[in-house]
């Protein structure tokens, strides 16, 4: 049990920030439960917009390196996120990319699969409930009689935290699971990890989700692909072998195969396995080698049964993938 930091006169200074995120990472920190009380004993929160009232100006006033550990969640979607990432990098001894969005782009990085331009027309021009007769769209600067109002510019693509600043550690997951998070907190508090490391993955396993999955592999080839709502899977048997696309083989372990225990296939939120690089490509390989098809024509037919392969294989990892972002408009 962690009480205080050995050899430290003062408690750890901890910050948590959200960039382009949903708040689930912040909630995941609450999920450590009664251990929150221990965290209170050993750490002072010096910035956490979700739960405390420190402002950007407070952070800007801290000395460089003042924050011992900053847990940064969310992808980089706007110029504001870039600015805050740089600020927190300068103020933090250890900067952690916390969760799927900061580490691989996460769900919002699916936007990278669409061309960046020409989207205003969709939202401010053609949504069913829209009433916008003057075709107003938001501006980065708007002058009023009292002064100018500013908005950050939205970037063309969602970036990972490490695309913008140097990151010491990465905790994957959407969101990271409480026990994993706690093990990292204990490690940091005990002085067990060096302050700087090049995006070393912590708080996760080193194998694939299949290694944690309770379902049995029967060494059966995939006959045909099935959509999850259109067929009921047989209990106890590997979902992928039954034809339900599952990212388990290409996804890093650490979650405990939670989605699969709820009867749903893995969608890959813990990111690629160690050394695999591109998660979608790894899944293509895993699936390709398990097709029942005996010739190329049948294999093509089988693959065509998969609904939305790019958005499924790269559900959480577009920003970190070889696809990264479609640079040119489709048409």
């Amino acid at each position: 049990m962690v009480r205080s930091t050995p050899g430290r006169a003062s408690p750890l200074k901890v910050a948590m920030y959200w960039a382009s995120s949903c708040g689930g990472c912040d909630i995941s920190l609450l999920e450590i439960g009664p251990r929150l009380l221990q965290l209170m004993d050993m750490a002072d929160v010096v910035f956490w917009p979700c739960a405390t009232d420190f402002k950007y100006a407070d952070v800007a006033g801290y000395a460089d390196g003042y924050i011992d550990v900053c847990l940064f969640n969310g992808g980089i979607r706007s110029t504001e996120h870039e600015e805050v990432a740089r600020l927190l990098r300068a103020k933090s001894r250890t900067l952690v990319a916390y969760g799927a969005c900061a580490s691989e782009g996460g769900i919002p990085a699916l936007a990278n699969l669409s061309p960046p331009n020409g989207l205003f027309e969709t939202v401010y021009g053609s949504n069913p409930s829209l009433h916008n007769p003057s075709h107003i769209v938001p501006q980065t600067r708007v002058a009023t009689e009292f002064g100018e109002l500013e908005l950050p510019r939205q970037l063309d693509h969602v970036l990972r935290l490490r695309d913008v600043v140097e990151v010491d550690y990465v905790i994957p997951g959407c969101p990271p699971q409480a026990d994993q998070v706690w093990s990292v907190i204990e490690l940091v508090a005990s002085g067990g990890v060096p302050a700087r490391n090049r995006a070393l993955k912590v708080g996760c396993g080193h194998k694939s989700v299949c290694d944690e999955c309770p379902r049995e592999k029967r060494r059966m080839k995939i006959d045909s692909f099935k959509r999850p709502h259109l067929a009921i899977p047989e209990a106890g048997w590997c979902l992928l072998e039954q034809g339900f696309v599952c990212s388990g083989p290409a996804t890093r372990s650490g979650c405990g195969a939670l989605c699969i225990t709820a009867g749903q296939a893995c969608r890959g939120c813990y990111g690629p396995t160690a050394g695999a690089g591109d998660q979608g490509l790894a899944l293509v390989t895993a699936i390709g080698s398990n097709l029942a098809a005996r010739d190329e024509a049948r294999a093509r037919e089988q693959v065509a049964e998969i609904a939305d392969p790019a958005g499924t294989f790269y559900r959480f990892s577009v920003a970190g993938s070889l696809l990264h972002g479609r640079r040119e408009p489709l048409q």
Partner: peptide, 24 residues
Amino acid sequence: PELRGFERFCQGRPVEEMPRITAR
């Protein structure tokens, strides 16, 4: 000061995935 673009990037996704995607 922010937008994430769900309405746009949900286009093309299988509708049965929407409960899992929009939960985020």
